[in-house]
Design a protein around this nucleic acid. Sequence first.
DNA 1: CTGCATCCTCAATGATACTG
DNA 2: CAGTATCATTGAGGATGCAG
Lengths: 126, 126
Amino acid sequence: MPTICKFEKALEILTGKWKPVILLRLFANGTMRFSEIQKAIPDINKKMLAQQLKELEHNDIVHREVYSQVPPKVEYSITAYGHSLHPVLQTLNDWGEGHVEHMSRLHGEETSTEAVDRPQTPVRKA
Amino acid sequence: MPTICKFEKALEILTGKWKPVILLRLFANGTMRFSEIQKAIPDINKKMLAQQLKELEHNDIVHREVYSQVPPKVEYSITAYGHSLHPVLQTLNDWGEGHVEHMSRLHGEETSTEAVDRPQTPVRKA
DNA sequence: CTGCATCCTCAATGATACTG
DNA sequence: CAGTATCATTGAGGATGCAG
């Protein structure tokens, strides 16, 4: 059980199609209701949002506060422990920033930086 | 295009089922032949290895040195730029280390830390 | 030895409807 | 409003064979 495991474990937390966006939103806004997050991230659907939040909650990154009232109200926020992620996010973001520049320098000046990766597995088309 | 993009871009590099292992191997061993990496990571297959290496190469993280000889010989190594990833990996790993402990403290003392995540979508079985 | 092409599998993602 | 349950989709991941 080398270093890999820890490393991969850490990645598991940040990975997932919506984790990053959700996390950033919560880091920025502090506390948000379920519907607020949904509005903030139009392309996500309830199932995914709930699912990802659940995972983040399980990892003690996000806190879930339920208000027993009608209509229901649930607020999400970054836990104390979750804030320990901040430096990690920062590092990742800083490197990412330099990286996009590095890429444009290397390859074309495409501002899109899109469809450049993962060329393989050409999608079994009809 | 807020911070997310850079952040996610960075994640893209590290993510992928085999990127972490491959990266760590290369960081540790310096230079390895295709077959060496394969032997070092028994569970990976040629296609995946080639694919992930290609992506890493495209991102200028890994260097590919081809020796035009028979039989063919190709060596992979971390590029100069690729080494800029080291602090990122370090940060991630450090946080991951603390995280596994935090998890065991929170939930059970399960050394497995397995099947605890992602409870949803119960696998559509026959 | 390397690596691409093909075909296949399945887990993650998504759309939708229903419930407290 | 905040979920859960179901069913459908898709694309990353994998097995295998051919080719340089």
